[in-house]
Design a protein around this nucleic acid. Structure first.
Lengths: 137, 137
DNA sequence: CCGTATCCCCATAGATACTG
DNA sequence: CAGTATCTATGGGGATACGG
């Protein structure tokens, strides 16, 4: 947004326009990035890429996630409108989670990032080893 | 939506090949995503987009970051080979941080993600409000 | 089967003070 | 100017047990 050019408080000569984390846009964007950086969210989003899944189905697919964390992660994604939660009042109960259009949209940039990460993992790990070696010596 | 018309859940008795977070690739990718999800890393990477910056220059640009956090963030980025640290043994001392080629490469997918976040922030915030309203009632 | 509730640990962020 | 050192506190995340 090109927010109006209000000459703020005339405090400092010129405030940086974009990089202020307190700025609304930055904070909003950061909150989305935080979700991506979330330990489990990305995995869940990827799992749901090929159709709806049930709770325990997801739990089994994502090896290592606790029931609690899966619930919290799904709630967070649901809250952000990225997945839908559908309850089938059967016995035993059944709940399906499915990506929304918004969630599917997020998949692309996330995949791009994941692709980049996979492509450069070698370089990064090499850099880490080098750094650790230099520093531990 | 267009997901293939899977007749059933074809419950595979075997283990899923890709989505195991314990798998090396997944963990590696996750570690990169974690860095992106880091509260400050993305800001720093963006700040360095237009040339090298000094420590306090960055600190001033990123409103709200503490000295400690900036140091830790920069160390992490340096460790991953995303930024370089150049010391000028002058008085007073001067240290320049600059994006490496690797770091510049990471900028693109990150920008794409940031762009998506900015584009859909309205939708997400609306979803959050709706969810919170429904749930608090 | 699908969650919520509780307890506990420790990793991390912030504030502050000090050094090269 | 550019850090390091130290302390504290907040909360993320795992394990477990119980409820609908």
């Amino acid at each position: 947004m090109g927010t109006s050019l209000k000459p703020t408080h005339t405090r400092s000569p010129a405030l940086p326009p974009l990089p202020d984390p307190q700025h609304v846009d930055c904070r909003g964007v950061a909150s989305v990035l935080a979700r991506v950086g979330d330990k489990w969210s990305v995995f869940v989003i990827m799992m749901l890429g090929d159709g709806p899944k049930r709770f325990n189905e997801l739990k089994r697919m994502i090896n290592g996630i606790s029931q609690r964390m899966l619930t919290l992660t799904l709630r967070g994604l649901e809250r952000d409108g990225l997945v839908t939660r559908t309850i089938f009042p059967t016995i035993p109960p059944r709940v399906d989670y499915e990506l929304t259009d918004l969630g599917r949209g997020l998949q692309q940039p996330v995949k791009a990032l994941g692709q980049w990460a996979a492509d450069h993992l070698q370089q990064i790990e090499a850099a880490r080893t080098r750094f650790d070696t230099r520093n531990s010596a």
